[in-house]
Design a binder for these strands. Structure first.
Length: 377
RNA sequence: GGUGGGGUGGCCGAGUGGCUAAUGGCAGCAGACUGUAAAUCUGCCGGGCUACGCCCUACGUAGGUUCGAAUCCUACCCCCACCA
């Protein structure tokens, strides 16, 4: 039910096939984020046509609204959201980080003050797993503690150890729930440890000591640390990660992050930037970023990205997309979101092909040169 | 024709003697965004410079009062409301 086969590799870069209850996924692959059970602004068919193979949901947000009981009653997250392919739910661990101003952390778990109505909400490793089980995604994530990229060794150590303890509890609860239905959902652990090599390795060791996981996630990156540091962490980790399991770099990234991640053995990515930046009028192209609201596009008859096959690029001009943004028509936000998702999906698809014919690194070098040439990325 | 109100930077609109190149908002321009508290946020926005400072031009027009005026006075032009 949960499998991963390596279809090919090219000096560290990997191409694989991940099997999940709702379908298979060809990697490397970007996963669009649908925090509240919807990829912001988009119809599931649009997300699918952009090439998405799997999307995310979020434990904290779906727990607050509509509540996992509602989702479970309505047949689970897939049916509820009209998405019949694989899904993954984040544990709420990221909200411990992003909502740090309105939560209190203790050893047992985290107490939030709801960002919606101020009410008290509590997440523990056990409750996060219970919520995720009720939501019913193919992959559940362990409840982790991530910290800013500048965190000290001491703080990173503390958070890493807590993540270990919480992983133990997450796994136990998940085992209990999955005992009666082992093919329903798998649980993935998350490597923490900040920017510190010894902690990253210790984190991974602690994870591998605690079970035989069907996938391993790397978290706590792209949270304020310089990009070269993230690259170094990935390089530190690569030799120690199980070769026959998918590797998921959480919360990353931008196009160049996908290239760098893939080059260092990452198989899966997720990031809100494709849709958020899309809504904000920033589009990715092979030649770097394009500010869709910019005056330069006023009468530009060309497509956003000449090499892209998305619904925005094959049908509309840059001038029209700019007009939609200037006029604040929602269609603009949707089209650029679609484009950005498609752009990252295409990146994964092309990288996969290049890995399989073992020309990935040369291709990546060309890609970087072109992407950064104009200095807009 | 009379009475009253008003004319401020691309637009709307504060400001009623110095701290005003002039609050705000809009429009315009540029930028940010990485497991989504984000259809959000930030910066610029009269002109010119040997620019973290200086110089010019500016609050309907023309004069005047004053050390100093968008702010006070006079005349004129225009707009609005009401009365004839």
């Amino acid at each position: 039910m949960f499998g991963f086969t390596l279809d090919g590799s090219d000096d560290g870069a990997r191409a694989g096939t991940l099997t999940l209850p709702h379908g298979t996924i060809q990697t490397p692959c970007f996963m669009p984020v649908g925090t509240r059970g919807a990829v912001r602004g988009l119809h599931p068919d649009e997300v699918r046509r952009a090439g998405a193979q799997i999307i995310l949901g979020n434990t904290y947000h779906l727990h607050l609204r509509p509540g996992e009981d509602v989702v479970a009653t309505m047949g689970g997250l897939n049916r509820f959201a009209g998405w019949d392919r694989p899904m993954l739910t984040d544990s709420g661990g990221f909200q411990v980080f992003s909502l740090s101003a309105m939560r209190r952390l203790d050893e047992d778990g985290v107490s939030f003050q709801s960002h919606i109505d101020g009410s008290a909400r509590r997440l523990t490793p056990e409750s996060s797993i219970e919520i995720q089980w009720a939501l019913g995604a193919d992959v559940a994530m362990a409840f982790d503690h991530l910290i800013p990229g500048q965190a000290s060794h001491a703080d990173a150590l503390d958070a890493m150890r807590r993540t270990h303890r919480w992983l133990e509890r997450s796994r136990q609860r998940h085992d209990e729930l999955a005992a009666g239905d082992p093919g329903r959902q798998t649980l993935w652990p998350i490597v923490q440890g900040g920017t510190h090599t010894d902690l990253r390795e210790a984190s991974l060791r602690g994870i591998l000591d605690r079970g035989d996981w069907s996938g391993v996630a790397i978290g706590g990156l792209s949270v304020g640390e310089p990009k070269p540091v993230m690259h170094r962490v990935l390089e530190d980790l690569a030799p120690h990660l199980p070769g026959d399991r998918p590797r998921y770099l959480m919360g990353v990234g931008f196009p160049d992050d996908l290239i760098e991640g893939i080059a260092r053995g990452i198989d899966l990515f997720d990031c809100v930037a494709a849709t958020r930046n899309g809504r904000h009028g920033s589009a990715w192209t092979a030649d770097g970023k394009v500010n869709v609201r910019g005056a330069a596009l006023r009468v530009d008859p060309g497509p956003l990205d000449a090499d892209c096959d998305c619904e925005a690029c094959t049908r509309f001009t840059r001038a029209y997309l700019r007009h939609l943004f200037v006029a604040e028509e929602q269609l603009g936000q949707r089209l650029v979101s679609i484009h950005n998702i498609r752009f990252l999906m295409q990146l994964g698809e092309t990288a996969r092909a290049r890995i399989l014919d073992r020309t990935f690194h040369a291709w990546a070098a060309d890609w970087r040169r072109r992407y950064f040439a104009k200095g807009t990325a």
